[in-house]
Design a protein around this nucleic acid. Structure first.
Lengths: 208, 208
DNA sequence: GCTAAAATCACCCTTTTGGGGTGATAAATC
DNA sequence: GATTTATCACCCCAAAAGGGTGATTTTAGC
């Protein structure tokens, strides 16, 4: 028994799995307690392994990495999960972050970056590689070419927040008819004819 | 005239301004075309300076860095803006990213990180330092102690997307009454009695 | 295997909201 | 000076929301 950082690797590609293992094995203070080819294989062992950090692939046979995250967190509430994957579509990244991943690295990350990430994450930090940061950031960037005016955008935001026209009118100190009028214009501009379509269109195009 | 990367620094603290200038001045391929103590001072010169990258402080006398971003983007649509600041509240980060910032670094970033960031951002990417990533990521973390069941969460998500109960029922292949029933339970659990309150409560607590 | 929670569906009821149509006016912006 | 934006008024009706009550069937936890 020592004070080494207990690490588990879950990755279906054997070459990568061995590669990561070797990489981290050489690091002072790290202990690779186990490696698995899938979460389904790891599942029953995790409690005994008691890792402090898990390196997790997304794309695996059986339970996906995304689905695995909440299960891991349930079993080991204090374990940090770092996603290591080639896939980096915005949806997957957000799903992973939503599920509680503590870090997100792409597989082209350098050895030093991975080691650094493991250390950082235990310091209570989040880590993400540059292309992931790019994805996250671009998702925040509003579309600057929105056809909607400021007022229309404001109103659509509130509609998306579930407010009724009356509530919106009260909040903005304008008449309900004014809101109604704005909504009509929004629908025309977005070429839709219902609330849900408008919200969808606006979110897809980052108008709100 | 050479092919160097044209950089402008806008930072009110003289020591930091000179520090950054010196740091980047020594880098091969970088040209510091100008430095300013505020955006208001820089404003009229920017077009002539024609920088490809601007290092921008948030907290400045006069126009804030946040307000400056859209103005910069308007004047120089192809110029990358990297925020360099000590302040890193989530609101400020989101505001900056929303305004179109291409990068966000905190001032404790190492020299190498800053240089790396300037290079990376010109590769079309976003850059953010680790503590910013942390903030961004934590804002994505769902509350794992949600009182809502999976189904309820699914339905509340769809309500927040503006779907009606009927649409939700169709999408989930269940009866409208079932949706209604779930909604009632959601309202009870969240202690609300309307759609907008439910969405608000759920978003505040990151249940969805 | 038992029990509690979750998910499913069926009715009742009334009020609110949504969306379509038409038109007008002041203010801001270009 | 013309266009856009923001404001408000009135018509209509179908759709949706929300409240109440109760029941059945899976699922999941112990």
């Amino acid at each position: 028994m020592n004070d080494n950082l207990r690490i588990v690797i879950i990755e279906d590609d054997e070459v990568l799995r061995l590669g990561y293992q070797q990489l981290l094995f050489d690091i002072d203070g790290f202990s690779i307690v186990n490696t698995y080819a899938s979460f389904d294989l790891a599942k029953s062992q995790l409690k005994a392994d008691a890792p402090q950090v898990i390196l997790l692939d997304i794309n695996m046979p059986g339970t996906s990495g995304i689905e695995a995250i909440p299960e891991i967190k349930k079993t080991l509430p204090n374990c940090y999960v770092i996603i290591l994957t080639v896939f980096d579509s915005p949806e997957v990244v957000f799903e992973a972050l939503n599920m509680g991943a503590d870090g997100y690295l792409t597989k082209n990350s350098s050895s030093e970056k991975i080691v650094e990430a493991v250390k950082d994450v235990c310091g209570g930090g989040g880590v993400m590689s540059i292309n992931i940061a790019r994805i996250v950031m671009s998702s925040f960037q509003k579309n600057l070419n929105s056809p909607l005016t400021k007022r229309e955008t404001e109103i659509l935001k509130r509609i998306a927040a579930g407010q009724t026209k009356i509530q919106i009118a009260e909040d903005l100190f304008i008449d309900e008819n004014t809101v109604r009028s704005h909504v009509k214009n929004i629908y025309i501009k977005l070429d839709v004819n219902s609330k849900s379509e408008a919200i969808k269109a606006a979110k897809n195009n980052r108008f709100i």
